[in-house]
Simulated scan of single mutants.
Amino acid sequence: MLLIELFVFIGTVAFAISGSLLAIQKRLDIFGVILVGLTTALAGGVIRDLMIGKIPPTNLAEPQYFLVSLLASLATILFYEQMRKFKHSISFFDAIGLGVFTAVGANAALSFDYSQPFLIIAMGLVTGIGGGVLRDVFLQEIPQVFRKEVYGIASIAGSIALIFSSDFVPPVISLYLCLIITFTIRMLALKWKWNIPVVDRKSKINRRTLNS
Score class of each variant (00 low, 15 high):
205 I>M: 06
63 P>N: 05
167 D>P: 11
176 Y>W: 12
62 E>W: 05
71 L>M: 15
47 I>R: 08
108 A>C: 09
112 F>V: 07
130 G>Q: 09
154 A>I: 06
99 G>D: 05
195 N>C: 00
101 F>I: 11
74 L>N: 03
92 F>R: 03
77 I>D: 09
52 I>C: 14
124 G>V: 08
144 Q>Y: 15
198 V>E: 14
32 G>D: 07
87 K>F: 12
128 G>P: 07
180 I>D: 00
51 M>Y: 13
160 I>R: 04
41 A>P: 00
141 E>R: 15
84 R>H: 08
146 F>H: 00
16 A>H: 00
208 R>S: 05
84 R>Y: 06
210 L>Y: 00
121 I>M: 14
125 L>F: 14
9 F>V: 08
206 N>V: 00
13 V>T: 12
195 N>R: 04
13 V>G: 07
96 I>R: 01
132 G>P: 03
57 P>I: 05
157 A>R: 01
172 V>D: 13
48 R>L: 13
6 L>Q: 08
47 I>F: 07
137 V>A: 12
191 K>Y: 02
19 G>W: 01
138 F>H: 00
27 R>A: 15
73 S>G: 14
33 V>F: 10
106 A>N: 12
177 L>G: 09
186 R>N: 03
63 P>L: 03
7 F>N: 04
57 P>T: 05
139 L>H: 01
93 F>D: 10
202 K>N: 12
131 G>H: 06
127 T>L: 14
84 R>K: 15
114 Y>R: 09
77 I>L: 15
117 P>H: 07
6 L>E: 04
3 L>I: 14
69 S>Q: 07
63 P>W: 00
45 G>Q: 03
208 R>P: 00
20 S>E: 02
42 L>F: 00
175 L>Y: 11
74 L>A: 08
165 S>C: 11
74 L>Q: 04
167 D>Q: 15
24 I>M: 09
33 V>Y: 04
107 N>S: 15
129 I>P: 02
48 R>Q: 12
127 T>G: 15
23 A>I: 05
186 R>L: 04
64 Q>R: 12
143 P>D: 08
200 D>A: 01
102 T>L: 12
127 T>K: 15
114 Y>T: 06
12 T>P: 04
134 L>P: 03
69 S>R: 06
128 G>R: 06
135 R>Y: 07
139 L>T: 02
25 Q>W: 10
110 L>C: 14
107 N>Q: 14
86 F>K: 10
17 I>H: 01
36 V>P: 03
80 Y>S: 12
99 G>Y: 05
3 L>P: 09
199 V>C: 08
145 V>P: 05
76 T>G: 13
